[in-house]
Design a protein around this nucleic acid. Sequence first.
RNA 1: GCGGCGGUAGCUCAAUGGUAGAGUCCCAGAUUGUGAUUCUGGUUGUUGUGGGUUCGAGUCCCAUCCGUCGCCCCA
Length: 422
Amino acid sequence: MANETLRAVRGMNDILPAGIGLWQHFEAVIRDWLASYGYQELRTPILEHTGLFKRAIGEVTDIVEKEMYTFVDELNGESLTLRPEGTASCVRAVVENNLLYDGGKRLWYQGPMFRHERPQKGRYRQFHQVGIEALGYAGPDMDIEHLLMTARLWKMLGLAEFVVLEINTLGGAESRASHRQKLIEWFEAHQDQLDEDSRRRLYSNPLRILDTKNPAMQDLVEAAPKLIDELDAAAMAHFDAVRQGLDAAGVAYRINPRLVRGLDYYNYTVFEWVTDKLGAQGTVCAGGRYDGLVAQLGGKPAPACGFAMGVERLLALMAESGQNPPGAVADAYVVNVGDAATRFAVLAAEALRDAGLKAVLHCGGGSFKSQMKKADASGARFAVIIGDDEAAAGEASVKPLRGEGPQQRVGLAELAGIITKE
RNA sequence: GCGGCGGUAGCUCAAUGGUAGAGUCCCAGAUUGUGAUUCUGGUUGUUGUGGGUUCGAGUCCCAUCCGUCGCCCCA
C-alpha cells in the first residue's frame, strides 16, 4: 500500500477509465438537455475569496461554520476558499461582469465542489455538481421551467422511476423572519420536550428542528407554528402558479411543508428531488428561488432561481439501475509482428485516422497470438494484421472481430473502405 | 464531527493462535502468422499502517489511516 502522503486526499476520488463511460454519457446528455432549453455555460474559478461564501451562504450555516476548505495564501495573506457550491461564484461573476445589463440570463456550470465532511457513499469531500441559474426572472414561469427541466432530464437519464419531487415555499424575507420568531417562542415554551440536537439549533437554525427524525418530538413539531400561516398574498399566488404549472405539465410532486434549505439565500419556491435508493444521501437535485442574493452581493437587485445536481449521486443511481455504457472503443486494432511490419503499421494506422476512423496501433511487440488477444480485449471491431509478408507487399489483412465475415487482404488505399463505420 | 461494522493478490473472497490459499485477471505454451471456448504451466502479497500480548499473530489487545452503514449535513 502506498505511503500515506502518496495517496489521494480522503474523500477525493480518482475517476478511472473503467468507470469513465458513465460520466461521459452523463455529460453528453447534460449538454443536449441544456442546449434544448437555451442555457449558456459559465466557467468560474474553483477558488474564491472566503468572504464571498460567508456573505452568500450565511455565516451560521454548517457549510460555512465547519465544512469549508479555507486557507491563507501565504504569498499575500488573502483568505481563500475552495468553492463548496456554485451559486455564489455564479452570482459574483454575473455582478462583476454586468451580465444582466441587457436582461435576464440563463446560465449553467459544472465542476468539482469541496466540503470537509465525513465521507460516505454519495458524500465526498470533492464532489461534482451541475448547476443551473436563471437570473433576472421574477415570475413563477421560470420556477416552472426549472422543475420541468429536471423532470425531463430524469427521463433522458433513465431515472424517472427512481426519484420523486418535493416542493415547498419559504415566502418572502418578512414571512420567514416572523415565522422564525414564532417558532423560537413556541419551542422555548416547550423546552422540556426538545432533544439535545433541537436545543442546540433553537437559536441557530430553528427551521431545522421541524426536520427532526426523533419520533418523540413528532407531536410537538406537528403543532408548531406553520410558515404557510405567515405567507402574504404575493407568496401564495406565486406558489399556486408553480403548482398549476406542474399540474398542467403532468409532473407529480409532494408538498413538504418541512422542506427547508440549508443555505440562507433561498426564498419563495424550494424543491428537492429525492430517491430512496441511495441510503442516507437521498437528495440528488435541489434548488429554488433566491431573489435577494444578487443585491446582497452588490449587484443591482435582480430576482433569480436555480438548482444543482449531485453528479456522483446521479451516477450511482444510474449504475444502480444497471446502466454501464462502455467508454470509447477503437474501430481497428493494428497488429504488427516484425521490424518491417511495425514500420509499415505506423503508416497503416495513420491512413485509418486520415479516413476518420479510430485506430489503436499495437506497441511493444509480442507474438501474433498475444497481439490478437489484445485486439479482442480492446473491444475494437476489426483487427488489422500486418506481418512482414503484408509489409513487403504494401498491404494489410483485415479480420472482423465482432461479427461474421472473411479475412481480407488489401492495399493501403482500400484499407479504410473495408472497415465500416458503426 | 459522533456511533456501529469492516480492511488478506489488480478484482471477488478463503485460512481452530501454528508453512498465507482459491477463483478471476495477467504471462507463456498446446497451435513455429490469428482473438473470444478448452487444456497445461507460471507470476502475483510488507495480511491498510504502527505498537503490544505470545515460543509463535492475518487471527487477540491498543492506536491510527481508509472504507462502509446510521446520525449530522447536503447535491
